[in-house]
């Protein structure tokens, strides 16, 4: 306990980025990599990708073990991380449920209960419709939504997809019926099968259907267009999809893919993982994943990351309060 307190104090003193000062540290037993979601989802795939890259390139002496703790939309995983104070051999990959789950369920957890390590990337959101649908622009789509209530499919409830949906409604005044599914792949297939009229799937979840000509992207919820310019279909590249804002729908949303550690770890321990993840980011495998999934490759750590988290938490609170998604207590 005393050591942990000292460590926190030391971390607070040194705080600023890394390398110099803190002595080196290395894991002495297998590192548990917690995924607060089920197998097969975006976070799980990314975690397993990192596990694969680490072992393929021998980036760490100890093995890395991926553990899924999907219970309660990640609530279980976060509460356990919170309880693992001072344990440097467990890290967690987070998605937006870092903010949304505590707000929606009222569990006693806040991201400040963890030690932020590094943002790996941000996942984009794209507004998709069936390729056979009559609307080819955002405004035509919203027009159709005004005339007839449309169904929006998404992953989970009161999580990122539903928040984006609520934000669209807020910005445009068009209501949607939100239908929650279990995973992004299922959502995309339900759109192909016309069981819903639109989705806000991440690029990687829907790309294959886009390429086979069954889905059509309308706009991307980012401040700028996606950077990938390779042709994905015969005519279009990711970079050809307009942003929602330039299409007259003022909604922006990006999802965190970041790594956290338990509270009360030393700065040297945090530094080890920052360096490890930086090495992972440099590998061709990782860059291929980023390209395939058209990720926003912003990667920050340290105080910059904390500022980002603070801002995002506030934004989620506002969005969720407006949409009425907060836990009734």
């Amino acid at each position: 306990m005393r050591r942990a307190v000292l460590a926190v104090a030391a971390a607070a003193l040194v705080s600023m980025p890394t390398t110099a000062g803190a002595q080196r540290w290395e894991p002495t037993r297998p590192v548990q990599f917690v995924v607060p979601a089920g197998t097969g989802g975006g976070a799980d795939q990314m975690a397993r990708m990192i596990q694969g890259i680490v072992s393929k390139n021998n980036l760490m002496r100890q093995p890395m073990v991926v553990v899924n703790k999907a219970g309660g939309a990640g609530a279980e995983a976060f509460l356990e991380m919170k309880g693992a104070r001072g344990n440097p051999h467990t890290i967690v990959i987070t998605l937006s449920n870092l903010f949304t789950t505590p707000l929606a369920t009222g569990i006693p957890f806040n991201w400040r209960d963890l030690t932020p390590v590094k943002m790996l990337a941000l996942d984009e959101f794209v507004l998709w419709v069936n390729a056979e649908a009559p609307y080819t622009t955002v405004s035509a789509f919203l027009e159709a939504g005004r005339a007839n209530r449309l169904r929006m499919g998404g992953t989970g409830s009161r999580q990122e997809d539903q928040i984006v949906t609520a934000a669209i409604t807020k910005a445009s005044g068009v209501p949607f019926t939100y239908i929650p599914y279990r995973g992004g792949g299922e959502v995309a297939v339900n759109l192909v099968g016309k069981h819903v009229e639109a989705t806000v799937n991440n690029p990687i979840e829907a790309v294959t259907h886009w390429r086979s000509g069954t889905l059509r992207p309308l706009c991307v919820f980012d401040s700028r267009r996606l950077p990938v310019t390779d042709k994905m279909t015969e005519t279009q590249a990711w970079s050809d999809i307009p942003t929602c804002r330039e299409s007259g729908l003022d909604v922006e949303y990006l999802m965190l893919r970041g790594i956290f550690m338990a509270p009360g770890v030393t700065q040297a321990q945090v530094n080890f993982y920052i360096e490890l993840l930086e090495k992972v980011r440099q590998t061709p495998d990782w860059q291929e994943l980023m390209r395939q999934g058209a990720f926003n490759t912003t990667a920050i750590s340290g105080p910059e990351f904390v500022t980002w988290l603070t801002r995002e938490e506030e934004r989620h609170r506002t969005l969720m309060t407006e949409a009425g998604f907060l836990a009734g207590r």
Binding site: G71, G72, A73, A104, T105, P180, R182, A327
Partner: peptide
């Protein structure tokens, strides 16, 4: 967790019952 509304039910406040 009720997967449709995203709220907890029948957990009686127990963390262990969340999953």
């Amino acid at each position: 967790l009720d997967s449709v509304t995203g709220s907890l039910r029948l957990t009686f406040g127990a963390t262990e019952l969340i999953r």
